[in-house]
Design a protein around this nucleic acid. Structure first.
Lengths: 149, 149
DNA sequence: GTAAAATGTTAGCTGAAGTTAACAAAAGGA
DNA sequence: TCCTTTTGTTAACTTCAGCTAACATTTTAC
């Protein structure tokens, strides 16, 4: 089991891979507003958990398990973000910051309930949306989150 | 500024005072599932922050500031709990556990938005409910939370 | 009133997550 | 090539929040 702090690093790495094609210590540190030694430590934690492959001075590559967890973390974030922004009508920036924090303290079951609720309220899908954070994304989620920056 | 961990201790103390009339180290430890030395440390943290008065082996008494903060923390908890239980339809026990965690990662503005939303959805009050976590409770909140166990 | 039980405190340790300072390795430019 | 810059690593320290073991104090029961 990996800590919430580690999950944040993992999520950042996944996004960097998507956005820049590679994952660098410096970029992670800059995105996460932390020091490079902190990133280094996090890398070895994640490596120990089998979520990425790494050798000193080498390239960071997420394992399949690491990718899957990343996606799950991002989906949780997206759901909370959607709720804050579209349902509670918080500002975009505040929604992002709060979603980050809230997502870290919420379990899968709660996320699933929230997801279904958000879907229902925003009329993204029918009442019996099959959203489950551990399974494939349902179509409306894919649509919603596909254009994340 | 007091940490989220300290806020939990404070909340527990406030409830113990209400429920048992006094606040004992052992009771706090038992309620919070932690050791007595941890409680002891927390007490001195809260004392340093001016939220309670205490001398070794004496009685724990919240200051006015401590009481006010406790109330605010409890209101935040109640709102999140209500949302999880009544809006998302989580089980009571799970709602409690999750509310505990979520409340700790959410700021005042988000709580206010959530409170207004919960009020609206549950039809507790009109759309223009004046809920503000920093001000006096509005009547529907008082009603809702008065019978907390 | 004193012995036993309950309660509270202290000291010293652990682990997580961060930091800075100094160093090592890799990459780029002339 | 080799020198400089950028990037990554290591060591050693900090803070927070917890823990156990041992001890001190207070309360209770007889």
């Amino acid at each position: 089991m990996v800590s919430k702090a580690s999950e944040e690093y993992l999520k950042t790495m996944y996004l960097l891979k998507k956005q820049k094609g590679n994952i660098r210590v410096t970029d992670i540190a800059q995105k996460m507003n932390c020091s490079k030694p902190s990133v280094n430590k996090a890398i070895y934690n994640l490596k120990d958990s089998g979520l990425l492959n790494y050798e000193s001075y080498g390239t960071i590559e997420l394992t399949e398990e690491g990718e899957n967890l990343s996606k799950k973390i991002l989906e949780a974030y997206d759901i909370v973000y959607l709720f804050l922004k579209e349902v509670l009508n918080l500002e975009e920036e505040e929604s992002k910051k709060e979603a980050e924090k809230i997502k870290q303290s919420i379990n899968d079951n709660t996320i699933n309930h929230l997801a279904k609720y958000v879907h229902k309220v925003l009329d993204l899908n029918s009442l019996d949306c099959d959203y489950d954070i551990n399974k494939e994304k349902c179509r409306c989620c894919v649509r919603r989150t596909a254009n994340r920056k």
